[in-house]
């Protein structure tokens, strides 16, 4: 950054939390910022956008927050699980290949080694890749604070760029979703000239139960075409359980285009973002047939 634009953080206290309890203690007064992989937080640390509060709470050594496990038909992923661990997880590769597929398109290896699933959610970037398939999987976010432990559905978690339903004293501790059944179908698509190292101009996740060329209970989620991830509920209803004909695809593409809200900026125009969204959806609907 240019010196005149820097707003370096004023950190008065550092806590290296060794347990979830210690972490939520340190966050209890709303004056702390949880630090995990650092890929978002540290990159923005001098930008002056106020994300770093006066107490830095390093949670990166809290072992309770690590790990991927299946318990009673649910898959639980600790908030500190890195994108690399998702990519490499035998359990996920067997039962939810959608997540490793996303992880393979997520940034670069060094970033995947640092970025955590909890951090990707908490950062609430409109272009966050990991969030889309998790919404498609019906994920709940586990939030802990001194006050309570609560679960929120990820689909309604985001309020705007950098803004979520979380309160300042809360910590994302894990995410959970039901282990998808055998006929679960999920795909993740992403734009960009490079395989992965690319801030998403448009990303899409399409999930559902695929039987005989029909997708039932579909979820269609787009990233980077609005201030938050956008679930195209009307389009989902239109294709739910239907035979995927050329006419249906054409109608679904038009309806989807009314549900997303892409903007014009220097990275891409509204027209091109819409074109990408249409291309992804068309290809994936054809692939379902």
């Amino acid at each position: 950054m240019l010196p005149q634009n820097k707003r370096p953080p004023d950190i008065g206290e550092y806590v290296a939390a060794s347990s979830v309890d210690a972490a939520i203690d340190a966050l209890a007064d709303g004056q702390g910022t949880a630090l995990a992989g650092g890929t978002d937080l540290w990159a923005q640390k001098d930008s002056g956008n106020g994300r770093l509060r006066q107490r830095l709470v390093n949670i990166s050594r809290v072992s309770e927050l690590c790990g991927i496990a299946e318990v009673a038909g649910k898959i639980r992923i600790g908030a500190l699980t890195t994108i690399s661990e998702i990519l490499e997880s035998p359990l996920l590769n067997e039962k939810v290949p959608l997540l490793p597929q996303m992880a393979n398109r997520f940034a670069a290896p060094q970033i995947r080694n640092a970025a955590t699933i909890g951090g990707n959610i908490a950062n609430a970037s409109p272009a966050a890749d990991a969030v889309l398939p998790l919404i498609g999987l019906g994920t709940s976010v586990e939030l802990r604070s001194k006050r309570e432990t609560r679960f929120l559905p990820l689909s309604g978690f985001f309020k705007g760029p950098g803004n979520t339903q979380m309160t300042a004293d809360e910590l994302i501790t894990a995410i959970e979703f039901e282990t998808p059944p055998g006929n679960f179908h999920g795909v993740f698509c992403k734009s960009g000239p490079r395989p992965a190292l690319e801030i998403s101009m448009v990303a899409m996740c399409l999930t559902g139960l695929l039987e005989g060329g029909k997708l039932s209970n579909p979820r269609l989620v787009f990233g980077a075409v609005g201030p938050t991830p956008i679930c195209c509920e009307k389009t989902e209803a239109m294709i739910d359980g239907k035979t995927i004909s050329d006419d249906l695809i054409a109608s679904a593409l038009d309806l989807m285009a009314t549900e997303i809200a892409p903007i014009d900026d220097f990275r891409a125009s509204k027209w091109y973002r819409t074109q990408m969204a249409r291309t992804f959806l068309e290809a994936e609907l054809i692939a379902c047939r």
């Binding site: 550092y14 390093n58 080694n113």
Partner: peptide, 20 residues
């Protein structure tokens, strides 16, 4: 790029205190 606990990391985005 450096290797921390067996994983490659961008040291520019890694807080120094986290090396502890």
């Amino acid at each position: 790029t450096i290797i921390v606990d067996g994983r490659s990391r961008n040291s520019c985005l890694l807080p120094a205190v986290d090396l502890d």
